Structure formats: C-alpha cells, structure tokens
Amino acid sequence: MQNAKDTFYLALRTRLAVINPERTVLLRGALRPGILVEEAEAPVAQLPCDIYVLRWLGLGADMELSCTMAAEECEILYSTCGTQAFGGLDRGRMLSAMDEEVFVMLQPFYTPKINYSAQPPINMGTQVFWDEPTFAPISILRDRLSRSIKVMVYSYQEQGEE
C-alpha cells in the first residue's frame, strides 16, 4: 500500500500547489506546498496551523477479487488561528477556505499509481482512487479552529508490491 499512499500524497500536494500556491510550509530548510504526511515527519506536540496533515489510520484488503485490492483510511487534519492582520477574527473564513481547498484537491477522486521509490518514478499502470470525504465537525481550542476529514483510499496490489 506504500505506493498508493505516496501517490495519494503527491497527487494532493501537486493539486494544492495549483489551487493555492500561497499555502506553503518551510520544512528542513525547504519551502514546499502546505501538506505533509505525519508519519514521515518528526513528532510535534501540536500540529502546525494553516497546512494539511495526512494521517494514515486502518488498513484492509479484499483478496476475493482476481487481484488484491487494498484500502487504507486517511485522515486529513487542518487548523487555523486566522490572520494577524485581523487579530484572528477571520479564523472562520480561513477554515472555510481550507475546507473548500481540500474538497477541490480531492477531485477527481483518482490518480495514476506511481512507484516513487524508483528513479525515475515508474507509472504502475493502475489507479489509486478514493471515496468522497467525510467532514468532521469543527473543533475549537482557544484561538484555534480545527477540522478533520476522512477518506478511504484504494488501490490494486501490483505483482511484487508489498
């Protein structure tokens, strides 16, 4: 499922760069689109504001098909404190903008599956696809508004894939 997870993340990252090139994050000295995979970064006490964080949850597989289909649930977390220019009073608008961005990032609900561990990356000939997202209610913690969405990500396992 690692190729599907990498493909999903990089598809969303590429789409975010087109949708909102201003949403960026500085990580390890590199400025990049404002989306990251939690398991690939150092642990933090509190997730950063104004970016998207992908968290992989449960894994399952359907082996009854002619080719094994794997599925893993992805939770996308994001939060905002608003902008300094408005003293944080625009945090509701900022969260709504992030809601819309993530919904647009997820469309269409598929992308070609790529093996990014190879150089150059290899198109695997199948698709990674996902369900429509399920939005959780807004969470409020002091000056921070947060939301998470969950989406099931599917892919067929290729020959020799783990």
Rank of each mutant, 00 (worst) to 15 (best):
G92K: 12
S96K: 14
G160L: 14
V104T: 14
M94V: 14
S148D: 04
N115G: 03
V104Y: 05
Y154A: 08
K113F: 02
G160M: 09
P133H: 01
P137W: 02
Y110M: 11
V104H: 07
T126V: 10
V102K: 04
S146E: 10
L145A: 05
V104L: 13
G125P: 03
Q127M: 12
Q119P: 07
R91A: 12
K113N: 06
M94Q: 15
I122T: 15
L145V: 04
R93N: 14
L89N: 13
Q159W: 08
L106M: 14
V151A: 10
T111M: 06
D90E: 06
K113T: 06
G125D: 03
Q159C: 06
R93M: 13
R91T: 03
Y156T: 09
D90I: 09
M105F: 06
S96I: 03
E162Y: 13
D143K: 14
Y156E: 11
R93F: 13
P137N: 12
I149F: 08
E101V: 11
Q127L: 15
K113Y: 07
V153M: 07
D143A: 12
R144H: 08
D99C: 08
I140N: 08
Y110V: 01
K113Q: 09
M105R: 02
S96P: 04
P121W: 05
P108R: 05
A118P: 01
S139L: 13
V128S: 01
Y156C: 05
G92Y: 12
G88F: 12
P112K: 10
P121H: 01
V153E: 04
I140A: 10
R142M: 13
P108V: 04
I122L: 08
V104K: 09
S117W: 12
I114W: 04
R91Q: 04
R144N: 08
E132W: 07
P133L: 00
M105V: 03
Q119C: 12
S155F: 07
T134D: 14
A136G: 02
R142C: 05
E162I: 13
Y156S: 04
P133E: 01
P133M: 00
E100F: 09
V102R: 03
L95V: 06
I114L: 04
D90N: 11
G125N: 02
R142A: 15
F129Y: 11
V104E: 11
Q159M: 11
D131S: 10
Q127P: 00
V104M: 09
P108D: 03
P121C: 06
R144Q: 14
V102F: 02
S117D: 12
Q157Y: 02
S139M: 11
S96D: 15
P137T: 08
M124E: 15
R147M: 02
V128F: 03
E101Y: 06
W130K: 05
V128K: 00
Q159K: 12
R142V: 11
R147Y: 04
M94K: 15
R144F: 10
D131K: 04
P108T: 01
F109I: 00
S155D: 13
P133T: 01
G88W: 10
P108E: 03
I114C: 04
T134W: 09
G92D: 13
M152K: 12
E158T: 09
F109W: 05
